[in-house]
């Protein structure tokens, strides 16, 4: 069973623990500038939104890569960049409709979320449950439950 990162922006406080955890997991340095998940602060609306790769099935980045440096990790479904093959051409960054694969000047390669080999550091670090790692088939389960709770089912009392 594959799992997906599930993001609930309403729970995000903007603390950036996820960005610290992601960058440390991948680079050994606490460095939000190199995080693969980003928190966007729409300050005038009071909204904070975590955003990262959703691991598309037909991944634009993977299809665009001219050297086949992006492969599917069959154990997780993550689209993973093989840094030994990546030539840093950045075509994938143009192809991705969501902007979630980016070039890293320090390595000369692109980087994106790889689900940390099935144990995403961001989800572990999130203190509020805004980022969770759930069954990929049921990312909508919580929201369905919320709406289900509002369904007006008459219950016979007598």
């Amino acid at each position: 069973m594959w799992k997906s990162l599930h993001i609930d922006p309403a729970k995000c406080t903007g603390c950036l623990q996820c960005e610290m955890a992601c960058s440390y997991e991948h680079t050994g340095v606490i460095n939000p500038a190199k995080s693969r998940i980003k928190i966007f602060d729409f300050e005038h609306e009071g909204r904070k939104v975590p955003y990262t790769c959703t691991q598309c099935t037909e991944a634009w980045c993977l299809n665009a890569c001219p050297v086949d440096a992006i492969r599917v990790d069959l154990s997780t479904g993550a689209k993973v960049v093989d840094e030994d093959i990546c030539v840093g051409c950045k075509v994938c960054t143009i192809a991705c409709p969501f902007g979630t694969i980016n070039y890293n000047q320090d390595t000369g390669k692109v980087q994106k979320c790889d689900l940390c080999g099935d144990n995403p550091a961001c989800a572990t670090a999130c203190p509020t449950g805004a980022i969770t790692y759930v069954n990929a088939d049921w990312t909508g389960l919580d929201r369905m439950r919320q709406w289900a709770a509002r369904a007006n089912t008459a219950v016979a009392v007598e």
């Binding site: 406080t13 903007g14 603390c15 950036l16 623990q17 610290m20 009071g46 909204r47 904070k48 203190p127 509020t128």
Partner: peptide, 11 residues
Amino acid sequence: TNAACFGCTIA
């Protein structure tokens, strides 16, 4: 809403 400073898990 409530909001956190950097690294804060209290918010």
